[in-house]
Design a protein around this nucleic acid. Structure first.
Length: 418
RNA sequence: GGGGGAAUGUCCCGAGCGGCAAAGGGGGCGGACUGUAAAUCCGCUGGCUACGCCUUCGCAGGUUCGAGUCCUGCUUCCCCCA
């Protein structure tokens, strides 16, 4: 890969921006991409109501694919999610109900058209659900047509399976079948849409390559595999977690402000990498930003945060988030901070600080609030709380009629009497 | 079918002579230092109407003043033999 010189804009961009972990055949894929003849898919499991940043990298790849004149397919795993992918998992996934899966699918679909064009045109994207063909399969036919091409010996040696076996962890038969279904998806998409490339995270390599093999045996055109690195931060932590949980892409699961903050808090060493992967800024601009040294790199982080947020939440929301952050972190109180309502009566009766922080959702329990008071982590209107028995009263509402509660340096909520 | 072992704080790993809210890590959170970074150092890491009360060690019973610890049965997982 180091000495490979791509001719296609697609591979040129992906390589330059660091999207590629492995590819089954650079030359072959490059030739197709140069002619705009790549139709690629990425599959998304419907295991939650929203995708999170971990999936964003592959959505970006689909977008670049389209920008460089090829056709993306977003595959909803409405069928495969009923089975559960064992890759990279220690334990069997909880089996989701069909209603849950459908609801999750609804939630997930929305993010794609933010950066990908859908429609009937040649390089317009298509969205399909593998439930369409998987749920109507007939077991015996499936075994005869597809199952005979799979060697159990080889399946047992696949990472996802082997790891479970070596660590003596349960691997149920249903999960064992996941790779067969995913391989079958690839061939089915090849037949239906002329799909010839599957992309995904590096943990999907085995599954994708199985699809290529199956395609060859079942007589599809030549298929290709392309994987991206799994995201970790420079200090090795798995990316995508914040204080409050996963970094969701959907606005109703994570506000634009919190999403902006997630990117703003990127480690220095990751700024360049993330600008390349998660924004569409031109490379010259990125090179300039990542060259900033010392505290200056904070400028690059703000650009990253705003650009990345603009992609998922829109430019307006991104800039509002940037502005809210600016006032908040320069010592002021932005009125656009997340807010929680309390009734006037509650305040007049006197609301305990501990309860107030729990109510604001900043801490999970009274006890936790109490502990945080001990270590000086709670503030009311920017004043450190020292007395756990402190009572909040209407007179404390000073900022735009609200009380500002802060947990640590980064988490703020406005308590609004209503 | 026979024999042996395991299950611990609902994030994970993991100690635990009958006095245990339960050692030690990891992770997470807060504080200090910085730049809303990293590294480092310090503190915290069951719940509550809080110098007390309540609920926790696979499940259900029992012995005991007192059980994570002992006994009985059950469930699940692993290993060996058939």
């Amino acid at each position: 890969m180091t000495d490979f010189k791509p001719k296609s804009d697609f591979l040129k961009t992906l390589i330059e921006r660091g999207y590629i972990h492995q590819c089954s055949d650079y030359e072959g894929l490059d030739a197709l991409a140069a002619k705009g003849e790549v139709t690629a898919y990425v599959g998304y499991d419907c295991t939650a109501r929203s995708l999170h940043v971990g999936s964003l990298i592959s959505i970006m790849m689909l977008s670049w694919l389209q920008k460089t004149g090829n056709k993306p397919i977003a595959l909803m795993g409405g069928g495969t999610t009923r089975v559960g992918d064992p890759s990279g998992r220690d334990e069997t996934r909880r089996i989701l109900t069909i209603e849950d899966i459908n609801a999750n699918k609804e939630g997930i679909q929305g993010v794609f058209d933010k950066i990908i064009q859908f429609g009937p045109g040649k390089s317009d994207a298509v969205m399909v659900d593998n439930a369409e063909w998987l749920t109507t399969l007939n077991y015996i036919e499936m075994l005869r047509d597809v199952g005979r091409h799979f060697s159990v010996n080889r399946m047992m040696s696949m990472d996802s399976v082997r790891m479970r076996l070596e660590r003596e962890q349960e691997l149920s038969f249903i999960e064992f079948n996941y790779m067969i279904l995913q391989a079958y998806d690839f061939t089915e998409l090849s037949r239906r849409y002329g799909c010839n490339l599957q992309m995904g995270g590096s943990d999907q390599w085995g599954n994708i390559v199985n699809g290529i093999d199956l395609g060859r045996r079942m007589g599809t055109q030549q298929l290709y595999a392309l994987t991206c690195p799994l995201l970790t931060t420079a200090s090795g932590a798995k990316m995508g977690k914040t204080a409050s949980g996963a970094v969701w892409l959907n606005a109703d699961m994570l506000t634009a402000y919190d999403y902006w903050q997630f990117w703003r808090n990127t480690e220095d060493a990751d700024v360049g990498k993330f600008l390349k992967l998660f924004t569409f800024l031109p490379m010259e601009e990125i090179r300039r930003l990542e060259a900033l040294a010392g505290a200056e790199i904070n400028e690059a982080k703000k650009v990253l945060a705003t650009e990345a947020t603009a992609l998922m939440h829109g430019r307006t929301a991104a800039e509002a988030a940037a502005e809210t952050a600016r006032t908040t972190f320069s010592g002021g109180t932005a009125t656009a901070l997340p807010s929680v309502e309390v009734t006037k009566g509650e305040l007049e009766a006197g609301l305990g600080v501990l309860a107030a922080f729990v109510k604001a959702g900043l801490v999970p329990s009274n006890g936790e609030a109490r502990r945080q008071v001990q270590s000086g982590g709670l503030r009311v209107n920017d004043a450190v709380v020292t007395d756990p028995a402190q009572i909040l009263k209407p007179a404390d509402a000073i900022n735009d009629g609200a009380i500002k509660l802060s947990f640590g340096k980064k988490k703020h909520v406005l308590l609004r009497p209503a």
